[in-house]
Design a protein around this nucleic acid. Structure first.
Lengths: 214, 214
DNA sequence: TAGATTGTTAATCGATTAACAATC
DNA sequence: TAGATTGTTAATCGATTAACAATC
């Protein structure tokens, strides 16, 4: 019944979430021309305990050198490899509103192995228009195009009320993963992976933390 | 040394993150005119275990009725209360790029107690322009305005390299919380709360889950 | 009443942290 | 060599789940 039923035997998800954080530090070190980085280096910048960094990095399979740490370039490519960010995954985006447009315009995804190849909407007001150089297509064309282009990933940025509908469309198009930016819980078959990216969860945490100071 | 040092004695953060999810179900029930909702109702829609829902709701302090569950309207207002979403927090947004514009255009924040009252940028290309009806001001005006308007919250949507600078500016303006959409770790004094909302963390999780199916 | 659902106390599970020997 | 840092094994901590009596 759990979301993670098929996902055993890998790094703990909290560790996976921290890996991109390590990448930002690593890239900084690389720019500065440093060859080695230790877990204490990480811990000082990120306010984490060195032992936690060591455990996290161990999950990627990298092996360090006592007294030195890890080779910066090697660790970067190991993490990229671990995350599968060295080969591009092509994605369709559904919902070309404010948030969808923002994601279309975010250039950083390319470096993270994500390539949004097309965007779709239901509204005649945006269909045919172009946002950040990408043409918005009618949602009706999605299933056919997805199969022809072998697109594996769908990004949902429609309002909550339309999210399930968008998910159904993507599933019927044979997609294998969904990045869901709507606050809705999606019902999909067990072979489809869903990652919820819900701003309201983050805002809830922030609100509670802030409230503690009143 | 931990981020949560000052934040003891409240609901566990994973529970807090789930509360907005319950709200979407509750609002659906309310629209349908239902008076009562049980933890099994929640669990069926959200694929959670009833016991987890019960534990989560207990943290808000609400008391249910055996055999009936919880009063829909009462539970909604209890959660809103718990999150502090019934009175508006005013916020400044720093960085009027693609993501910043999207957040400026997101009408859902009002319902979640968040009111973005002004946006700031460093670029002369956007200063003076208006996005979704909100004028973009020069970052130089931020400290003075923040103090005069008693703004408590800052939202950072600048590129990683400018994030610390933006945080310093907000901190010097007396802000007490930061919602950080950049991938950088921010260094702030202990009385300032930071909530990181990092897309790359979510993408990392999604990538690992997807990779598991290859 | 009978039975569904609550609230509470205890058991389990998984992630974080500690301790320490191995190593360069 | 001496000491910093690694990798590993064990202890702790906190969240999830189970069990069950209380209740309407």
């Amino acid at each position: 019944m759990s979301d993670n039923e098929l996902l055993k035997n890998s790094a703990p998800l909290p560790s996976v979430r921290r890996l991109p954080l390590y990448l930002t530090v690593l890239e900084e070190f690389e720019r500065e021309g440093k060859e080695w980085i230790s877990t204490t280096d990480f811990s000082e910048v990120l306010f984490l305990k060195p032992i936690q960094v060591r455990k996290d990095l161990a999950h990627t399979g990298i092996i360090g050198k006592p007294k030195k740490g890890f080779k910066v370039t090697e660790l970067i490519s190991t993490i990229y490899n671990f995350l599968g960010w060295n080969n591009l995954t092509e994605a369709f985006l559904v919902g070309a509103g404010a948030l969808g447009s923002a994601l279309l315009g975010y250039s950083g995804f390319q470096r993270h192995g994500l390539n949004i190849v097309a965007a779709f909407d239901v509204s005649v007001n945006v269909i045919g228009k172009s946002i950040h150089g990408k043409e918005i297509l009618s949602i009706e064309k999605l299933p056919d195009l997805a199969r022809r282009m072998h697109v594996r990933l769908g990004i949902i940025t429609v309002p909550a009320a339309r999210a399930q509908e968008a998910a159904d469309c993507l599933v019927s198009a044979g997609i294998s993963g969904i990045w869901n930016f709507s606050p809705s819980k999606l019902h999909v078959p067990p072979n489809v992976v869903v990652q919820r990216e819900d701003l309201s969860s983050g805002l809830a945490v922030l609100s509670v933390k802030l409230g503690r100071f009143d």
